[in-house]
Amino acid sequence: MPKWAMAIDLDKCTGCGDCMAACKLENNVAIVDAEQAADDRVMLWMDMMTIYEGEYPNIKLKRIPKPCFHCDNPPCIKVCPVHATYKNEEGLVAQIYNRCIGCRYCMAACPYTAKVFNWYEPEWADEFKTCMNPDVSLRMKGVVEKCSFCAHRLQKVKENARADDREISDGEYSPACADSCPAEAIFFGDLENKESKVFKLSNSPRAFRELEDLGTIPKVFYLSEKE
């Protein structure tokens, strides 16, 4: 059984935010207006952590893309009272919107604040309505959503592979953020496959995971020479 994981090379990442835009378009993530955004209700599945270091005029800026980490030991699934979020056999932490009751326990439990809540009925400009990705359902007001590692793409890839009677090759299944990254800083693949790029990167001396001491075992690895 494969175990899907991501590696983000921070030494390559320029912090351009292309992954965020690609994710929003791929997954029909709602666009909130300025007023809602001021209330901290911006909807992003792929967030960008921005850290400022030093004092003016010698400020150093760190930009770190942050999707859902699809932890191997996810704290969010333990608190969900309706099993709307769970970890499947392939290690993907799923969010089933039609089952979600919007209690937001999972958002409180997630140490990485990877989940977002639909505070409003998503509204789309007319120009947008024809541009929706039909493979991803539109969420309604009152449910929690998060990065799915583009699980809808996995279904298509699996179907293609099984129709041709072959295994999924390394790099065939790749989420929108990894596909769009102009710096090629995001890698995606199977951790169980010892030949995969992600497996090799995850064992690199540069690799680390976010808040490792919590024991959540994220499946998103960061690579950086700097601390």
Binding site: V136, A151, H152, Q155
Partner: peptide, 8 residues
């Protein structure tokens, strides 16, 4: 009958 096989 994993949810993700049909729902996303």
């Amino acid at each position: 009958y994993d949810c993700l096989a049909c729902h996303h």
